[in-house]
Every structure is written in C-alpha cells, then in structure tokens.
Design a protein around this nucleic acid. Structure first.
Length: 564
RNA sequence: ACGCCUGUAGCUCAGGGGACAGAGCAACGGACUUCUAAUCCGUGGGCCGUAGGUUCGAAUCCUACCAGGCGUGCCA
C-alpha cells in the first residue's frame, strides 16, 4: 500500500506546488470501496487557487500524468480518488505476505533505539488480581509492538516488594499468622492477613503505628523483619512466575522496589546537593509549586523513603544502564499525578531524558459497587478468571469438536485469549466494569472469534494438502477478496499507529476487521470447489490472511490454535 | 474547592477535523446434503451529555456548564 501512496504523492507533486511531505499528510482512506483506495481532499487548495474544491478535483484529474499503478483516478465532488490496479495490489500484497511470513508487518523504524517498558509490577504478598492483568497484557503487547518496529526492548517488572505494606504484613503475621496455613497456601493466607489488618486497624489505629515501626525496622536491616520479608517475597514471586507462564509473558529483569534500597540515600543526597530538597512538616520534599503541583515527598517524618523516592532512583538507574530512547510506565491512571511529579523532579535535576519518560495510563477495573480493593478483600483473583474461561472453552470444544486431539491445550489458548483480548480490545484509558458474563462470552468481538477464523483457514489449507503453491493473485478481484486484501495491505500502518499511541486496542480492532472480512469471504467464495486457477489464488489469499491473523494475535500475546 | 480522565444505538464500545456516524451484545427474521453455525445475511434502533465558539467543513478542536470516575505530602 505504501508503494501506491508514494506513487499518488509523486503524481500530485508533479502538478501541485506543495511539498511531498505535506501531500503525504493530506491523503486519506476513503470510507467505502466504491470511492477508491486513496483519497486526496481538495478543500485546502480552494483558498490558494481561488476555485471551488470540486473544480480543482476535476482539473487535477485531467492534469495528472498516467500511472500504471492506478486503474483509474476520478474526481468525486471535492475529492480526487485513486483506484489501485486491483490485480497489482492483490499480487504485491499476497506475495509479500507469503514471502515475509512472520516478518510481515514488521518495520525497522526503531533500529538502534532502546525502549524500556515498566509493566505488570504486582505487589508482593498480595494475590495477582484481575486489576494487575491490565498492566501485564498492555505492557506485554507494547513490548511486542515496539519490537516489531525494530526497537530493542527491555521489559522490567518493578515488583512492589518494598514499602509500608510489609510493615502491615509483618505486624499482621506476628499477631495472627498460622504456620500450617502459610505452608499450605501462602498467598491465600497472606491475603487474609492483609485484609484482617485493614479491618482491625479501623478500630485500632495503634496497628498502623506498629506497621510503620516494622517497616522502619525492615529498612534498618532488622534480621527478624528481613527474614519474614524475604520469605513473603519468595513465595509470592514463585506464584507470579507461574501465572506469567500461563499468560506467556516474560521480563528481561525483575527489578522491584527493593532492588534500589542501597542507592536510595545516594539519590536523596544528590537531590539535596542540587538544592532541590527542603524540609516541610518534618518530611523531606521537593517543592513543585512552580509547576503547579503538590510537593514530591522523598522522606517521611521518620526518615523512611516513599514510592516516589524509589521511582526516582529507578529512573536514574535505568537511564544509566540502558540509555533508553523511550521509557514507558504502564501504570493505572490513578497514578497520573505521581508520574507528573516524578518527571518534573527529573527535569529539575537537569536530566534532559526526562522528556523521554512517558506514563501509559489505563482505567480501573471496578464492580457495580465501586473500585476493586485488595484491602477490603473484594479482589477477583486472576487465576479464577483464567480457570473459568478455560473450563468454558473446554465445554464448548467438548460439544462442537469432541475429537480434537489436544483439547486441554486449545481450551487454555482460547479461554486465556478471550480474557486477554477482553482487556486489550477497548481503549486502555476507559474504566472496565468487571462482568463475568462478558468475560465468558466467546461470540462477537472476541479472541475466540478471531481464533475461530484462523482455525477455519487452517482447516481448508489442511484439506488442500500439497497444493502446488503456484498461484496468480491477480485473479483476486472480487469484492470480498479485495476487501480482505485492502485490510491485509494496511497491517504495518496499524502497528505504527498502535505503537505511537501505545494502544494495543488498535491491533485488536484491526484483527477483528480482518477476521470479519475473511468470514464474509468464506461464506460467499468457495476455495476448494472453485475452478483450479481461482482455487489456487484463493488458497494463497487465505494463507496470507492466516499469517496476518497469527502475526496480529502475536502482537497481543494471544495464541492461534490450528484447530478448535 | 482545585486538577486529570470519561460521556456516541436499550447495553458494551469503534471512529478523535473531511464524503451518508459504525460494530458487537440484546430483540426479531433468514442461512448448516457444500471448506468447522464459536460463523454468515437481513430488519429495527442515534438532538454523538448541554450551550456557545473556531472552520469551507466539528462526534472529532476551543470555552463554559452538567453528570460519572480518579486524584490532591508522609499508601503504592
């Protein structure tokens, strides 16, 4: 498609005074196939040329030189519409997909550049809830998107393995902990203790002081506190890794908050040396009133550090380690102010790379009755969601395709794919109301819909076993075929847009569009029963669709089973 | 009180200056001797939160207001 766009720009530049780059920005995608493949609106020329846009479009049509890339170029009202040579578009698109395979859609815009992605970051000693799924799957998808554009990616899991909550947990464990439960199901027990702590602290505020004291002890290296912390961390991490394996998510580094403990004093000292820190109400803060923000707290009254301190330290450490060209923080929108403060402090410290740091916010998952809360014990465990989705998928397979060879594996892929897709298919900034019915709905705009389309293609290709792989894609000129090809040709554009906006939903929507166009084609155009030359061309086309679906689902972190 | 985000079909959401505003779900009506019906085709359904403004052109940009969510120094 880029080839056709460049040609259109070349033609226009030959008859218009405008620069090629400006023309490139003007080109649009027509809303309907009858209107061609590339459109050039003439409104803006009306002023400089002092003519009506419709007149300009008509005149341009007559003036434009011939091009063998376009079947025709027509003026439709104020638009100049370019109609690609359909046979040529079909050939170049299908052939390049089948040549490039897994690499189709990839670009090298980011060659030599590094992007650090901070994502998932679950809190140690708390179960992995559906809330943490968002950061995990969005971050994982962004990792793959940037990688597809040629960037070197560094995925960091900034585990919440330090902070006041450990004081609470230690206090709670020492009061109410039961060793047998801790051995049997450590995460469940820790969760119960955490919930109980918050419930009892409401009646008994002295508990909070006790927790703060334990955290201070932990920071000061108290052996008892350290031993418990280490144990909590160990059992949690083992559990998280199990879930990441189920989700197919990997990290280049697990550098949690505790990782920076030894560097904290140094960082705070640096801020102080720069004269940016000041005492306020017993705490140490960086004043940000000039930036119109509340101050950023670096030390509490008792001298203990805060979240912001460690994030500041982490940012500096990461720049020194990776010299990133971009750093993405995939963290909930409720922390927007924190990141604005963090970036403002970095800027005050004179780090020019502060502008390369970017908060990628997302909306909260909540219930009808409000926000999900670990403290109140209203958490929905991710694993329960994944298991129920998998069971449901297994049930449907049993009903529709009982002879399927690796049922459990496919049920996992479909169930988990549905959960991931449900999270990625809408704009990340929007809040999600958690609804079991919706999570467990496998029809319509869902991963199973896309996976099913893929499986259907695989089924046809299996039946066409040993087809000669010789085809003439220029025969693919039917409306359904062209609709599919038009989408396939625009895959790279969507990857770029998804990465630029940090919105995996762009790819999710795209993959749905491709699947929908394929399904329409499937119902109207026989593949195996068509005349031999058409049949071969259509086999090539559906193989291309299959490849784009696989590549697209990969970018979302979703598997594409060949049968389901 | 202030700041940020969101408001589009009954429900969940696409579209984020350009050609008649689109899907899915739900409802109703059709299509499985034919490549997997987790599918497809069709019908109905809209002051794009409200009011102004910018523009040749606004669901899209600006302002104000309304509604909801989130946040606003010792949680993360």
């Amino acid at each position: 498609m880029q080839m056709f766009r460049n040609e259109a720009i070349k033609l226009l530049a030959a008859v218009l005074p405008a620069a090629k780059e400006d023309l490139a920005g003007e080109l649009e995608n027509p809303p309907a196939p009858e209107m061609g493949d590339i459109a050039f609106p003439c409104f803006k020329l009306a002023k400089t040329l002092r003519k009506a846009p419709t007149v300009i479009a008509a005149e341009l049509k007559d003036k434009l030189p011939e091009s063998k890339l376009f079947a025709r170029i027509e003026a439709k009202g104020p638009y100049l519409n370019f109609y690609c040579d359909r046979a040529l578009l079909a050939r170049t698109t299908v052939e390049s997909i089948l040549e490039q395979r897994e690499a189709y859609g990839r670009l090298d815009l980011g060659r030599g550049k590094t992007v650090v992605i901070d994502f998932s970051a679950p809190n140690i000693a708390k179960p992995f809830g559906v809330g943490h799924l968002r950061s995990t799957v969005i971050g994982n998808s962004l990792y793959r998107l940037y990688e597809a554009l040629g960037y070197k990616c560094v995925g960091i899991n900034h585990l919440g393995d330090w902070g006041t909550q450990f004081g609470k947990l230690i206090a709670a464990y020492l009061r109410w902990g039961v060793a047998e439960k801790m051995t049997a199901d450590p995460l469940q027990h820790l969760y119960e203790l955490y919930v109980r702590f918050h419930r009892e602290a409401e009646q008994n505020p002295a508990l909070d002081d006790e927790a703060r004291a334990w955290f201070k002890k932990l920071e000061d290296g108290d052996p008892e506190a350290t031993r418990l912390w280490r144990h909590f961390r160990e059992v949690s991490l083992a559990d998280f890794k199990r879930i990441y394996k189920i989700l197919g998510v990997e990290f280049d580094a697990y550098q949690g908050e505790s990782f920076y403990n030894e560097m904290l004093d140094e960082t705070v000292a640096l801020v102080e040396e720069m004269g940016l820190a000041q005492a306020s109400e017993g705490a140490l803060v960086v004043d940000l009133s000039a930036e119109g923000m509340p101050p950023c707290l670096l030390r509490k009254q008792d001298g203990a550090t805060l979240y912001a301190t460690r994030d500041l330290c982490a940012a500096i450490y990461r720049y020194n380690t990776y010299q990133f060209d971009k750093m993405l923080y995939v963290v909930g929108a409720d922390q927007a102010l924190h990141f604005r403060q963090l970036f403002a402090v970095l800027k005050k410290m004179g780090y020019s790379w502060a502008d390369r740091c970017c908060h990628v916010p997302f909306g909260l998952i909540r219930f009808q009755d409000g926000k999900m809360s670990t403290r109140q014990g209203t958490l929905v465990f991710l694993e329960d969601v994944l298991n129920r989705a998998t069971e449901l998928a297994a049930g449907i397979i049993q009903e529709k395709n009982p002879g399927l060879a690796n049922k459990e594996e496919v049920a996992r892929q479909v169930g988990i794919g549905a959960v991931i897709f449900g999270d990625l298919s809408n704009d990340r900034i929007k809040d999600i109301e958690f609804d079991w019915d919706k999570v467990l709905d496998f029809s319509g705009e869902t991963a199973p819909y896309v996976q099913y389309s893929h499986a259907r293609i695989c089924s046809i290709l299996r039946k066409a076993d040993n087809w000669p792989q010789e085809y003439d894609a220029s025969l693919l000129t039917g409306a359904e075929e062209q609709a599919v090809i038009n989408l396939l040709a625009r895959f790279s554009d969507q990857i770029v847009r998804a990465a630029e906006t940090c919105k995996p939903s762009v790819i999710a929507r795209y993959v749905l569009d491709v699947a929908a166009a394929f399904n329409t084609f499937y119902h109207r155009c026989p593949v195996l029963q068509a005349p031999p030359d058409i049949s071969r061309a259509r086999l090539a086309l559906i193989d291309a669709v299959r490849q784009v679906l696989v590549n697209g689902l990969w970018l979302l972190g979703i598997a594409a089973p060949e049968e389901m």
